[in-house]
Design a protein around this nucleic acid. Structure first.
Lengths: 218, 218
DNA sequence: GTCTATAGGGGGATAGAC
DNA sequence: GTCTATCCCCCTATAGAC
């Protein structure tokens, strides 16, 4: 199917060069078709971007919700452990690493910095998921102020978004070369980091002693 | 100075529209000058991007190193607490929020997804800082395997990069509207999240029970 | 140092044949 | 559905006057 080939090529090139950086010309060339086919099948470049995002996000988000519901059901009413909630959120994305034909992961980080159709589409797709997971987290962490929980879930999302762009600080000379890309391993590391972060004690107004740094904290 | 006006306009427009999305035409128009002045002062668009990044990153990174050194000195040899190390890393960036003429923060997230000169320049500037902070963290967390520490510091960087793009999941209906943008408050929340994440217990191979999710973890 | 003018290429969109 | 050809716009870079 031409439509699928265009989506595949667009996903790959958008991931490599960004939404602005990849032209319809190179996308259609990579898909072994012509410029006009994009407008025939999708209408415009912006609509193509939205289609690329939606194709992956819809099943992804359904799986997230299903995993969360399964975790909740397994604990029959009691809130599931943070690790399970976070695994339901991260896991379906990290799984994509194992699919060589899928180049969606870097887009997941990029959309955060977009302002047009790409962001609107992503926001539409992700908002119900965020609401659903925030509700589960509120039950698991009832002592946390909603605003602090909201910040911390944003942080947890950041961990995912950046990790999916590839570990770009590394390899450093001092980190001894490559980092693992095993999906289960990566998920575990993100989950243990974010779970601890979500559970962190809340410091109101100050956590002394930060003597040398106090001017920073007003 | 024309050169400064170009840098200011470029920073603002790059932050709003991305490096590809902002054209030299609109940048020079915003800077009340002409196209040719960019090539006169900087050489090319890529060189302008590098100049925009370096102008902010150099003092920023010097301040990070100085704050870390001060924290280490204040503890006379003993490793400083994680909160101080992280405050030295985050603080100088978050401080920029208070400077309305500075639009550098979103760029800090964007560069992670770039592949050309922008990334090379960012990498050059950030690598010594990463090495320096990793060394400090190794002393503060000597039990952590270097590879796990490297991943976790990457996560800590992700928290910063995404937060500087603005809390884009929010405001959600359920989060009750706006989140604070107070610099000290934001720093504290990032620091407490990341400090807990860095200190998290390490789960090798599995953290049961994740019954409903076990297929995810291979 | 600053400008105008233009070269030269590449972009998205579309008309119209097949 | 698919293609070629083309329109028209905007891009970066540069030459050359002042």
């Amino acid at each position: 199917m031409t439509k699928e080939r265009i989506l595949d090529a667009a996903e790959k090139l958008f991931a490599q060069k960004g939404f602005d950086g990849a032209s319809l010309r190179e996308i259609t060339a990579a898909a072994s078709t012509n410029l006009a086919s994009v407008n025939y099948h999708f209408g415009s470049k912006e609509d193509l971007i939205a289609a690329v995002l939606r194709r992956r996000m819809r099943p992804l988000n359904e799986r997230r919700i299903a995993l969360l519901a399964a975790a909740e059901a397994a604990h029959s009413g009691a809130p599931p452990p943070l690790t399970e909630i976070l695994t339901a959120f991260y896991g379906p994305v990290v799984e994509l690493i194992g699919r060589p034909e899928c180049h969606f992961q870097p887009l997941l980080g990029r959309v955060f910095f977009e302002h047009g159709r790409a962001w609107e589409c992503f926001r539409e797709e992700i908002l119900p998921v965020v609401e659903r997971f925030l509700a589960a987290l509120r039950k698991a962490l009832p002592h946390l102020e909603p605003e602090i929980l909201a910040w911390r879930f944003q942080f947890a999302g950041a961990v995912l978004g950046f990790t999916m762009a590839g570990p770009r600080f590394f390899p450093l000379p001092s980190s001894g070369g490559r980092l693992t890309t095993d999906a289960g391993e990566v998920t575990r590391r993100m989950v243990e980091f974010a779970a601890a972060g979500l559970r962190a004690p809340v410091h109101h107004r100050s956590f002394e002693p930060c003597t040398a740094l106090s001017p920073l904290l007003s």
